[in-house]
Design a protein around this nucleic acid. Structure first.
Length: 397
DNA sequence: GCGATCACGTT
DNA sequence: GTACGTGATCGCC
């Protein structure tokens, strides 16, 4: 609960937005969108509401006669996975996807955020909610500043609009692989501990194990797949989920998972033991003893039970990472005050903190933040923090 | 105006 | 496959 004061400070501080850049982006997006709309109407042979999944379904599956791939409660899905498959057979789905991306960026961020800039401060003030999530993470709302785009051209340009005050810089500090380090800690898995103690590349190491090649022979593609497997482990992996995520066969996904657990018996034993213990106690705990009941584990429904198993695995990891960054926020705020620095904490995005730093304080702030985050707790592997500094959030990252 | 639905942004 | 919040559409009150 002492975190409340830190959160209140962050909410009151707010973050500066470059409104003229947002305006430029809005106009560019508007132009690109209207060109797309024209092409889409031409390819569809008629005008319709592109933002209506219902109308889009009729065009794709009835008028054009493309194959249906998966169902929703009320009809056939037109989500990104479906449209990507359909783009192999027709021009239209590709244009729809592009339209979706641009209209999401425009309506949710570029147009919405400037409308709610505070008139007195000229800044954007979010609410950080402390009692919403099941795992102990924070959430952010009105506006949600924890889901600002980062990928692709438009993600970068939107983050360029999050700027520092005059004579200030933005400093972004993020925990490197905190969830996998927490897993290494809980599971005491020898391989995981070794790679983090040596500060090795975890995804390359996993790829080397999964594909049976030396680390120096790991290809980009192998590393990409291994990265997905590592994330899968945190989420409570299943062959079904992994095969869908990687677009590979169920059997191949199962092989990767089996190989992973064969190479990481510490993780396998940890997961097995945790699930059986949780079946007895009914709840899991984080590193600071935050608890979450997992009634799903005892469900008679197989899918719900499997969901319960994933929650048992994921909650202590995600929740412990949340505990750790919250403690570091408290310690950082305490030191900033004690040392009378002008640096202000602005945002928390689960494993990242964003600060606004007076230019002259840059080096002091950097070492203070890094030290407090890396030493917030002592695990049986080191915690590592990457820091970036720049005029805007894109540069700082 | 409200809620359900679909879709999609982040970690 | 975890955890969230928001926008657009659409049917209903």
């Amino acid at each position: 609960m002492p975190l409340i004061e830190v959160l209140a400070d962050m909410e009151m501080a707010g973050v500066k937005i470059d409104l003229s850049l947002m305006n430029i982006l809005s106009e560019e997006l508007g132009k690109e969108l209207s060109a797309l709309v024209k092409r889409i109407y031409f390819l569809a042979g008629e005008e319709f509401n592109i933002n209506s999944p219902k109308q889009l379904q009729e065009i794709l599956f009835q008028k054009i006669g493309l194959r249906t791939i998966k169902k929703t409660k009320t009809g056939f899905s037109t989500d990104v996975d479906v449209l990507e498959q359909l783009s192999l057979e027709h021009e239209l789905p590709k244009e729809i996807l592009e339209h979706r991306t641009l209209s999401k960026v425009k309506s949710t961020y570029v147009d919405a955020l400037p409308r709610i800039v505070n008139h007195k401060t000229g800044r954007l003030h979010t609410s950080f909610n402390q009692t919403i999530t099941a795992t102990g993470r924070l959430s952010s709302s009105e506006p949600n500043l924890q889901n600002i785009p980062i990928r692709g051209k438009w993600g970068q340009r939107i983050r360029q609009a999050f700027t520092a005050e005059k004579a200030h810089l933005l400093l972004s500090s993020d925990y490197s692989q905190i969830e996998l380090r927490v897993l290494a800690h809980f599971s005491r898995d020898k391989g995981l501990i070794e790679v983090f103690k040596k500060d090795g590349d975890i995804h390359t190491r996993t790829a080397s194990e999964l594909f049976g090649v030396a680390p120096e022979n790991v290809t980009t593609e192998m590393r990409r797949m291994a990265k997905t497997v590592n994330f899968g482990v945190i989420y409570g992996i299943s062959p079904f989920g992994l095969s869908r995520q990687l677009g590979i066969a169920h059997d191949e996904a199962k092989l990767y998972i089996d190989t992973y657990f064969a190479k990481h018996s510490g993780v396998r034993n940890y997961v097995d033991k945790l699930i059986s213990e949780t079946s007895e106690t009914g709840y899991v705990s984080t590193i600071f003893n935050r608890k979450r009941a997992i009634p799903e584990l005892l469900s008679t429904n197989r899918n719900t039970r499997h969901l319960g198993e994933r929650l048992v695995i994921n909650t202590p990891i995600q929740g412990s990472a949340a505990d750790i960054i919250k403690l570091s926020m408290l310690n950082i705020q305490k030191r900033l005050k004690k040392e009378k620095l002008g640096t202000r904490m602005l945002l928390q995005v689960h494993d990242e903190l964003l600060f606004e730093v007076p230019e002259k304080e840059k080096d002091r702030a950097e070492s203070l933040v890094k030290e407090e985050m890396e030493n917030a707790v002592e695990l049986n592997v080191p915690l590592k923090v990457d820091i970036g500094i720049g005029r805007n959030w894109a540069e700082a990252h």
